[in-house]
């Protein structure tokens, strides 16, 4: 692959599509992180571990289902639910006792969770990487701009907007969403209105972690499922949330777009340093708007 001058328009457009399907995963994971950050004010470092657990669970469930389409759908639903259940147990059992403490302690607690989850995954699934194929109906590729484009990526492109709309409806049209947004602004006031803030926090935390698991489940067929997945995704998700504006779902979408597209285009321009481009974009954004592009709800 050469430098920008040699890249055809078709190849460029295709790369943009690849970037957009990557954006979908990033958005789903980052929006969950953003939700938890916005309402609970916890930078949940274990979010990346939950993404990794989601991917490993999907692998096991697909294997259990025999690799067919039905098994894939089942895994796509069950793996995030499993992650949500795990996060529910952790939140009610451990985390909810710490809400009165400083942010630093909460941050360190989620770091402890990341350490524990990392080794638990190693115990359960072993240190080797895992991979499995897409379900039969999403295998192969279709021609777009005269170039082959994986069917599964098209599927991802369809899922992204669905999740975004679902989150919008959840936060704006449902009672729990409205309460959660109110709790993000003033938790004492919400408590004074007779609402059990602790359970609001639990629900938001579980929904956020569900999204981490969903991201992991969706990404699982496209790459090797490895031990280091958690480290890679969490830092990207954090960057996305920060450039978008903490706690803002649309900010997470915008941040994911910036991150995914600069990464994809970077591969065309300078393959070896492609990974540097999104980080550069983040730094440029932050030097000019240190609080992110969209309004933070903090």
């Amino acid at each position: 692959m050469g430098f920008a001058g040699h890249v055809t328009l078709a190849a460029f457009c295709q790369q943009v599509l690849v970037g957009l399907s990557r954006t979908t995963i990033l958005f789903i994971v980052a929006s969950g992180l953003s939700l938890v950050l916005g309402v609970l004010r916890i930078p949940n470092i274990a979010h990346g571990s939950l993404y990794m657990i989601g991917a490993f669970l999907t692998y096991s469930l697909v294997r259990l289902g025999g690799g067919g389409s039905a098994g894939f759908w089942m895994a796509l639903l069950a793996a995030p639910l499993g992650v949500a259940l795990l996060s529910f147990v952790v939140e009610r059992g451990l985390l909810c006792r710490l809400y009165e403490r400083e942010h630093l302690m909460l941050l360190l607690f989620t770091f402890a969770l990341m350490l524990v989850f990392g080794d638990l995954v190693k115990m359960i699934w072993g240190a080797d990487y895992r991979s499995f194929a897409e379900p039969p109906f999403l295998q192969g590729s279709v021609l777009i701009f005269g170039l082959p484009f994986p069917r599964y990526n098209l599927f991802l492109l369809a899922v992204g907007p669905l999740v975004a709309i679902g989150l919008y409806l959840l936060t704006n049209r449902t009672k729990i969403g409205k309460i959660a947004r109110a709790a993000a602004v003033d938790r004492e006031m919400v408590g004074a209105m007779g609402i059990n803030v602790s359970w609001v926090f639990a629900s938001v935390f579980v929904i956020g972690c569900f999204l981490a698991g969903l991201g992991g489940a969706l990404v699982a067929p496209t790459q090797n499922i490895t031990q280091g997945m958690d480290h890679a995704i969490i830092i990207e998700a954090f960057l996305i949330v920060i450039i978008g504006g903490l706690g803002n779902i649309w900010g997470a979408l915008l941040g994911a777009l910036i991150f995914g597209l600069t990464d994809a285009v970077g591969i065309l321009i300078w393959p070896q340093f492609a990974i540097v481009f999104p980080y550069m974009a983040v730094v440029v954004v932050l030097v000019f708007c240190p609080k992110g592009l969209l309004k933070s709800i903090w």
Partner: peptide, 8 residues
């Protein structure tokens, strides 16, 4: 790391 996590 598991042990470090539990200590933390």
């Amino acid at each position: 790391t598991l042990i470090l996590g539990v200590i933390l």
